[in-house]
């Protein structure tokens, strides 16, 4: 949050209570407040597509509010009608009537003369894995595949710790150049990659996936992404070429250990991701 912007906006909204503007004023104030907060109020700017979507919804909601009661509607309608019909507003009306098309034309001009932007592709967060996965001559059923080392966690903690340490070695020999020391996807080469490496600390990544999904992504990398798994420029190598199956499972253990997260359990897979 960018409090330097959000606080003044909230203060102005609070201050308006004392000024007691008309319903039209209120609606305009709210709309502008939401717009400013969405567009400038966040430390990390919110993408324009989302701002547009949110403002659309807010517009609908405000329209519903002001028109849901005859009195409120009159408060909004009358000043607008007066502005459009009364003779004394004529100069201003003429000005506005010219200004709006001019603004539209200006925006078209800016749009058409803007420097070209790199095309973007929506990123598929979790592309669908295949039904079966063949790694090192072994075919696994993705439905039932699980980390074979996971059970050691309870049955043989010592062996588990050894595997974990191996995973740590593998991570720092292979993965951290891109995914980073802190697994935030900010390794020393991350700035040179597009799409940027996955941030494992994000609760929306490995924490909501089964280990088999990670195994698939580690083993098959960018080249193994399915057709819809855009943007399909991922630099992620197909690690099956370089790592043994056990090593891949070990590094997956380490990912969860370091980020202090738990993989999604197998049976949860049948639960829908929602509607």
């Amino acid at each position: 949050m960018n409090w330097m912007i959000v606080l003044p906006v909230l203060l102005v909204l609070a201050g308006l209570r004392f000024v007691k503007p008309s319903m039209l004023g209120w609606a305009a104030a709210w709309w502008i407040a939401v717009w400013i907060i969405m567009d400038f109020g966040f430390a990390v700017p919110v993408p324009k597509s989302v701002v547009k979507e949110f403002l659309g919804i807010v517009t609908l909601a405000l329209a519903a509010y002001v028109s849901s009661d005859p009195q409120r509607w009159a408060e909004v309608r009358d000043p607008m009608v007066a502005f459009l019909t009364e003779r004394r507003h004529l100069p201003l009306l003429g000005l506005v009537a010219v200004a709006i098309p001019a603004a539209v034309a200006a925006s078209i001009y800016l749009e058409m003369t803007a420097p070209a932007q790199a095309p973007t592709f929506g990123r598929t967060v979790h592309p669908a894995p295949p039904a079966t996965l063949t790694v090192h001559d072994v075919t696994h059923d993705m439905q039932t595949l699980d980390n074979p080392l996971r059970s050691l966690e309870t049955s043989d903690p010592e062996a588990f710790a050894a595997h974990l340490e191996e995973g740590r070695r593998i991570y720092y020999e292979n993965c951290f150049y891109c995914h980073g020391d802190l697994m935030q996807g900010a390794g020393m080469f991350a700035h040179a990659l597009n799409p940027i490496p996955t941030n494992f600390q994000d609760s929306g990544t490995i924490a909501m996936l089964q280990e088999s999904f990670l195994f698939w992504r580690v083993a098959k990398g960018g080249p193994g992404l399915p057709e819809e798994g855009g943007p399909w420029m991922s630099a992620m190598p197909a690690w099956e070429q370089f790592l043994s199956e056990e090593e891949m499972w070990e590094v997956i253990l380490f990912l969860y250990e370091f980020t202090e997260q738990r993989p999604r359990a197998l049976h949860a897979a049948s639960g829908g991701e929602g509607h």
């Binding site: 597509s49 979507e53 592709f121 929506g122 057709e227 819809e228 855009g230």
Partner: peptide, 11 residues
């Protein structure tokens, strides 16, 4: 029309 437009072709 605002969402990403992806056409998925069969292999």
């Amino acid at each position: 029309q605002l969402v990403p437009q992806k056409e998925v072709h069969p292999p």
